[in-house]
Structures are given as structure tokens and as C-alpha cells.
């Protein structure tokens, strides 16, 4: 594999290849083309951060700008999915879920069960997540636990370009509704990505670093904090195993438990608010299923239970750092 591309380009390529492969794949969202109906150039934006740039030129009207009406177009995506299409709807920021949540958690998530198995809703809702952009309280949240809480939804949060492409292709091919969370601070991050289409199965965590002393579980941007901490700790003689969950619902608890059985120590790193977070869920499941393997207290590294602050001075304190992960690792080794 020679080619390195950014996560943004990997997402673009996944959409492009799936739209080429399957005519039922359509893409909609606010400004995902950009400039529709405006006097200037068509395809002006390709999304607010340019993720869908260039797709309109290839796939034309299968990419649709929408009015600023999240309820209507997310609902339309859900409805079209129930009628045999494979829509990918971009919600821009996950913080906007509040204005269209019903169509996701009462409609898309429940059709299959509520209708006795007769419906399927293969919709993908893409949204930017995460802090670090100086974007303040309403454009920076990591709302993954809101969605993992809801049966019927799948929740995906890649940590790199390779995973983003394979997981998005899987999300589009998957027959259940998927919330696809893209960390905006990873868009520029580059990894080796095959140019061919490929799908990464859900519930297949990635052990990104092997180590026998402490298990660190993370997802999204926090995988990079965890590996940075692990690299630095290795110089102190502490070998950490870093497990990238990749998908949060379904979640690969087998991989976590297998790792904890080997290390006996667990640190969960999560950019979501601490209460009822992914970190709390993983900690609870490990306590339930691998209590005897634990040699020390489980540690969680999360932001404080506050909204995301604006001032860089505060936001940098808010986001879990490698140093905090290192402290947590050491704390597991006290007992």
C-alpha cells in the first residue's frame, strides 16, 4: 500500500465508490453540493468542510442540497430508506440532532422492531463530532452515547482514514440505520488507504498497539491520545494495549475482555461527557464479566461534566490529554 490519503478524502472516496456501485445510494444534506440555486458556481462547497467536494460533478442530482430543515430531510432520508433507497444524509454537526431526533430514534431506529421485522431502514446519517475546533458548546459535542443508548441504531466512530473508508462503505451496505460520527479534528489525518472499495465489519475492534500491562480502550480522536500515552509509557517500561472500538453499537466487548484478561488493568478514554458514556458502559461490562481478571481499579478519562467551552484555554483543559491518560494508567497500577 503506497498511497496515503486524509480521512476527509477517504470519506469522499467511499461515497464516490458506493454511488458508482449502487444506484440506490443518494446523498443529501445542507450545502453538501453548495450553491444550489445561487448565481455563482454549482458545486461551490461540497459540504461546509469540503468532504463531498467533486461528487456532484460525477453523480449529479443524486447529491442533493437541502433547505435548512433537518427534520424534513433526515425524515425524508429515513422514509426513502424504508422504500428501498440507500440514502446518506449529512447532518453537518451532530449537535444539530436535537432538531430532528424524532426521525432518528422514534422512526428509523424502531421501524424494524415495531413493524414486526417487515421493514428495514438502510439509512446512514453522517455527522461531525468532537471538540478542539474552538467551535464552542453547540458545535463540538461527542454525543455518541445518546445514540448507543437506542436499540435499532448502529453507531460508528472511526479514528483514521483507512477505517473511515471501510466503515462508511459497510455503513452504506448495512441494512440498519447507522449514525456515522466523523471527528472533525481527524479530517486532515492521513493513513494508507487502498484505492479499491472495501468494507470493515462492525463489532470488530482494532488492537492498534499490543501490550501486556494495561488495556486502554478508546475511539475516534481519543485513540491518538491513547497511543501517544502508550508510546510515552513504553519508555518508562509500561506496555499498554490500545483497543480502538471503531464501532460503538454494536460494540466488540469480546476484544476488550480478551485484552483485560491479559492485562488485568483497564483505562477507558472517551471524549463524551462522563455520565452514561461509552467509557462508563465499557467499565461496567468489564466489571461484570471480567472482575476476577482485574488487578487494580478501572479508570475513566473523560471531559468534565460541562458543556464544551469556547476559550482555547478552557477547551484544551476540557479534552482528555495524553498526560491524563498516562496518569490514569499509573492509577490502575497502584493497587
Amino acid at each position: 500500500m503506497a498511497r496515503k490519503i486524509s480521512m476527509k478524502d477517504a470519506i469522499n472516496e467511499a461515497l464516490d465508490q458506493e454511488m458508482t456501485r449502487d444506484p440506490s445510494v443518494i446523498v443529501m444534506g445542507e450545502d453538501i453540493v453548495g450553491g444550489t440555486g445561487s448565481p455563482g458556481e454549482a458545486d461551490a462547497w461540497g459540504g461546509v468542510l469540503g468532504v463531498t467536494k467533486g461528487l456532484y460533478a460525477k453523480h449529479g442530482d443524486r447529491l442533493m442540497d437541502t433547505p435548512l430543515s433537518e427534520s424534513a430531510y433526515i425524515g425524508a432520508a429515513v422514509g426513502a430508506a424504508a422504500c428501498g433507497m440507500r440514502p446518506v444524509a449529512e447532518l453537518m454537526f451532530i449537535d444539530f440532532m436535537g432538531v430532528c431526533l424524532d426521525e432518528i430514534f422514534n422512526q428509523a431506529a424502531k421501524f424494524k422492531y415495531m413493524f414486526g421485522g417487515k421493514a428495514q431502514t438502510p439509512v446512514v446519517i453522517r455527522a461531525m463530532v468532537g471538540a478542539g475546533f474552538r467551535a464552542a458548546a453547540q458545535h463540538s459535542q461527542m454525543l455518541t452515547p445518546v445514540f448507543t443508548h437506542i436499540p435499532g441504531l448502529k453507531v460508528v466512530c472511526p479514528s483514521n482514514a483507512y477505517d473511515a473508508k471501510g466503515l462508511l462503505i459497510q455503513s452504506i451496505r448495512d441494512n440498519d440505520p447507522v449514525i456515522f460520527c466523523e471527528h472533525k479534528n481527524l479530517y486532515a489525518h492521513e493513513t494508507e488507504v487502498p484505492d479499491e472499495p472495501y468494507a470493515i465489519p462492525f463489532a470488530e475492534a482494532n488492537v492498534v498497539r499490543e501490550g501486556g500491562d494495561v488495556t486502554i480502550v478508546a475511539y475516534g480522536l481519543m485513540v491518538h491520545r491513547a497511543t501517544e500515552a502508550a508510546d510515552r509509557l513504553a519508555r518508562e517500561g509500561v506496555e499498554c494495549e490500545v483497543v480502538d472500538l471503531r464501532t460503538l453499537s454494536p460494540i466488540d466487548m469480546d476484544a476488550v475482555l480478551e485484552s483485560v484478561e491479559g492485562t488485568g488493568r483497564l483505562v477507558c478514554v472517551d471524549e463524551a461527557s462522563p455520565r452514561c458514556s461509552i467509557a462508563a458502559d465499557v467499565s461496567a461490562q468489564v466489571a461484570q464479566h471480567a472482575f476476577k481478571a482485574l488487578k487494580g481499579p478501572v479508570q475513566m478519562v473523560t471531559p468534565p461534566h460541562t458543556p464544551v467551552p469556547f476559550s482555547p484555554a478552557l477547551e484544551d483543559l476540557y479534552i482528555p490529554s495524553a498526560e491524563r491518560v498516562m496518569e490514569a494508567v499509573r492509577a490502575t497500577m497502584v493497587a
Partner: peptide
């Protein structure tokens, strides 16, 4: 609901069916 009959479901959430019908029209 009976999707084969084009019945996308009675709905406990008032107004939620309107975007779904848009989706049906779109499809």
C-alpha cells in the same frame, strides 16, 4: 404497517409521517 401494501405505518409521533412521505416520494 404493511410495506408491501405501501402502508409505511401508523405513527405515534404526530407529524413524523410527513418527512417519511417525502422520502417515499423521493424514492
Amino acid at each position: 404497517a404493511d410495506l408491501d401494501k405501501g402502508m409505511m405505518g401508523a405513527n405515534g409521533i404526530l407529524g413524523a409521517g410527513a418527512p417519511l412521505a417525502c422520502g417515499a416520494g423521493l424514492a
